[in-house]
């Protein structure tokens, strides 16, 4: 890459790393694993930089690499572990109390980690990044019906593990 491209890449990393980290954290449940995942996505984006015409393409490319890496080609499941003995059924009551909010975060994180990588990716794409089913299918390289199926199963599990999220499904499971 020339100096201009180097500077553009540096700007891109500086501006978008944290946004990528946020999604990666939901995918992995761990700070270090999230950094590793984003590092891998950024590195492959760097190698493809000359082929990416616009900066928006760079972020889309990086996100696609990130999701594929997490779902497909990393040899081992790269997620934090769920601690044994967690009683998720009793967790999840949301209030404005900071302590309860922390408990809720723990419950949600563990519930996410109990999903399959593909289910977790679908949930993050649909409910965190606001992608449609069609867009999620394109990013993951699967059919729309697969996205629907994975999403439905994931929501069922999340509803079970985090009871106060039951509300979400009724309003959100329709096609978009």
């Amino acid at each position: 890459m020339d100096d201009t491209s180097d500077a553009a890449y540096a700007d891109f990393v500086r501006d978008r790393s944290h946004a990528l980290l946020r999604s990666a954290f939901l995918l992995t449940g761990d700070q270090h694993l999230a950094e590793d995942l984003v590092q891998e996505a950024l590195a492959r984006t760097h190698r493809a930089w000359s082929r990416l015409e616009r900066r928006a393409n760079a972020e889309a490319y990086a996100r696609k690499v990130m999701y594929h890496a997490q779902v497909s080609f990393w040899r081992r499941p790269r997620v934090a572990e769920i601690l044994p003995g967690d009683d998720l059924e009793r967790q999840g009551g949301r209030t404005d109390d900071p302590a309860d909010a922390a408990v809720h975060r723990v419950a949600l994180r563990r519930a996410l980690l109990s999903l399959s990588p593909k289910q977790r990716a679908v949930i993050v794409l649909r409910y965190f990044e606001d992608h449609t089913e069609v867009e999620a299918a394109q990013i993951l390289g699967v059919s729309v019906s697969t996205v629907k199926t994975q999403c439905s199963r994931a929501l069922d599990r999340l509803r079970t593990l985090v009871p106060d999220l039951r509300l979400l499904a009724d309003a959100r499971e329709g096609p978009r």
Binding site: Q31, E35, R105, F128, L168
Partner: peptide, 18 residues
Amino acid sequence: PLRTSLEDLAGTVAPADL
């Protein structure tokens, strides 16, 4: 609720210079 909760959880990740 799910979106809000995911936003909340994602907000706990620390910035990193990558």
